Amino acid sequence: MSIRHGLLALLEQGPRYGSQLRTEFESRTGSTWPLNVGQVYTTLARLERDGLVAPGGEDEAGHTLYAITDAGRTELHEWYERPVDRTSPPRDELSIKLAMAIGTPGVDIRAVIQAQRSATIKAMQDYTRLKAQALAAIESGRAQERDDVAWLLVLEQLIFQTEAEARWLDHSESRLVRLSVTADRRATAVPAAHKNQTAAPADTQAAPTTAPRRRL
């Protein structure tokens, strides 16, 4: 998730200071990706180093304001136009956990899958409940519609993710069952083939020989 571009997007709406950026970022995303002030100021320092933001004076309370530069606006709009790169997907802890659990002595991978499935379904239910609340807020006009719509989109993406994760867990469990059955069949087939090979010489010895013809 690009904190860098998220801050640029907020700064395009006008100069802001660090804790204000943190509050607005979390409001826009529903605190899905909470930030700390240190993280915000570290990112601002890098943006300033790269010429994408510049100090914009102070507000009445003495907070140092930051403003987006022309180069920052160009960078932001190029980010909007550029598809998210999927050639190097982020590391997923669940995928790594299942990959490492396979074949590890003492680990019941089906139990791992079942525990994760329960947690995933609960998360999906929680997101669905929050989605209903966001929709109700939008329809009633109780809060800022822009932030509620942004939060709604984030929630729906999270719902789709958890639905896909639940399907993947079901698929993984089915895959493991099929592979286990295949391995068992191979294991039982080997002794049977070995038995047939050892029995062959005895059958050959027991086979009757053809009697020679008498000459007339």
Rank of each mutant, 00 (worst) to 15 (best):
S2T: 08
H5D: 08
L7Y: 01
L10A: 11
L10S: 12
L11D: 04
L11P: 10
Q13C: 01
G14M: 02
G14C: 02
P15T: 04
R16G: 03
G18Y: 00
Q20A: 00
R22T: 03
E24V: 01
F25K: 04
E26K: 12
W33L: 13
P34T: 15
N36V: 14
V40I: 09
V40L: 04
R46M: 13
R46F: 05
G56I: 03
E60N: 07
H63Y: 00
H63M: 07
A67V: 15
I68W: 00
T69Y: 12
G72Y: 04
G72P: 09
T74C: 00
E75Q: 03
P83T: 12
P83M: 12
R86A: 11
T87C: 07
S88F: 06
P90F: 00
R91K: 14
E93I: 08
S95W: 06
S95R: 15
A99N: 08
M100Q: 13
A101N: 10
A101G: 11
I102P: 01
G103E: 13
T104D: 04
G106C: 10
R117E: 15
S118P: 01
Q125P: 01
Q125W: 08
D126G: 02
D126L: 05
L130I: 09
A132G: 11
Q133M: 09
A136M: 08
A137R: 09
E139Q: 15
S140I: 08
G141V: 11
Q144A: 11
L152H: 01
L152Q: 06
L153K: 10
L155N: 05
L158V: 02
I159T: 02
A164G: 12
D170E: 15
S172N: 03
L176P: 06
R178S: 10
L179A: 12
V181M: 15
T182Q: 14
T188L: 08
P191M: 03
H194T: 14
N196L: 13
Q197I: 14
T198C: 03
A199Y: 03
D203T: 07
T210Q: 04
R213P: 03
R213F: 02
L216W: 00
